[in-house]
Computed example of a mutant assay.
Amino acid sequence: MRKLVLAALAASAFAAPAFAQDDSFTGLRAEGVVGYDRVGDGTGQDAGTSDGVSYGGAIGYDVQAGGAVFGVEGELTGSTTDTRADSLLAAGDRLTVDMGRDLYVGGRIGGVVGSGTLLYAKGGYTNARVDTEYRTATTTTRVGENMDGFRVGAGIEKKLGGNMYVKGEYRYSNYGDLGGYDIDVDRHQVAAGIGIRF
């Protein structure tokens, strides 16, 4: 009987940190993300915005201190979104902008608002690959470039069973002026993710 009690105490001592980790937002995490992607070029034309799907993955690390959570994260996504502007520099011309891969590195800060629920705000640096094509009646010019910008957003994360979680977030990114053209590229995204915390 004494051995059984000691074994139970030893097992609970080893299990306690694991149970504590399940209730905490501290740790390394990895997730897949997919969502709605809307890109605008700032021209004010209806054709200057376009919708598509963003998809990819992210990794991050969070630390919980009391009810506050602080974290860093990195994300790599692709997109099906493109946009165009007509008669931009001359009558009859067309500029097409295709959004490619997007790299993001930033941080987040949030608060635990209930059992296994986190509300957070995020912000950081984003670098998007943009492929442009400018076409007139006589010439076609294609240019691919990387654009630097910033991203801000907010979201909610909810723990599932084990170490799994789901999240939803809105984020806004702005990449400034696309070189050589009078357009200001920005994007609005609503993303959902599912991940695991290690």
Rank of each mutant, 00 (worst) to 15 (best):
M1I: 15
R2A: 03
L6D: 12
L6S: 13
A7I: 00
A7G: 07
A8G: 10
A8N: 06
L9W: 09
L9C: 12
L9N: 01
A11N: 08
A11E: 15
F19R: 15
F19E: 01
A20N: 05
D22P: 13
D23M: 13
R29K: 14
R29F: 13
A30P: 07
E31K: 15
Y36P: 11
R38K: 13
R38M: 12
R38G: 07
V39D: 09
G40P: 09
D41Q: 04
D41W: 00
T43F: 12
G44P: 15
D46T: 13
A47E: 09
T49I: 12
T49E: 13
S50N: 04
S50D: 12
V53L: 13
S54F: 08
S54Q: 11
Y55Q: 06
D62C: 13
D62T: 11
V69Q: 05
V69C: 00
V69D: 07
V69G: 06
F70E: 14
G71A: 09
V72T: 03
G74L: 03
G74M: 01
G74K: 11
S79V: 09
D82E: 09
D82N: 15
T83A: 14
D86N: 00
D86H: 07
S87Q: 05
L88F: 08
L88W: 09
A91P: 15
A91V: 15
G92S: 05
D93V: 04
D93R: 09
V97E: 00
D98V: 01
L103T: 05
V105N: 11
R108P: 09
G110M: 11
G110H: 12
G111C: 04
V112I: 04
T117M: 10
L118W: 12
L119K: 02
G123D: 08
G124Y: 11
T132K: 10
T140H: 08
G144H: 05
N146I: 12
N146M: 01
N146D: 05
M147I: 07
F150S: 00
F150V: 08
G153P: 06
A154M: 02
A154F: 02
G155D: 02
I156H: 10
E157T: 12
L160R: 09
G161C: 07
G162P: 14
N163L: 11
V166I: 04
V166T: 04
K167F: 13
E169I: 11
Y170S: 02
R171L: 04
Y172D: 06
S173Q: 03
Y175C: 12
G180S: 04
I183W: 00
D186T: 05
H188F: 01
V190A: 11
A191R: 01
A192T: 04
G195F: 08
G195I: 01
R197I: 10
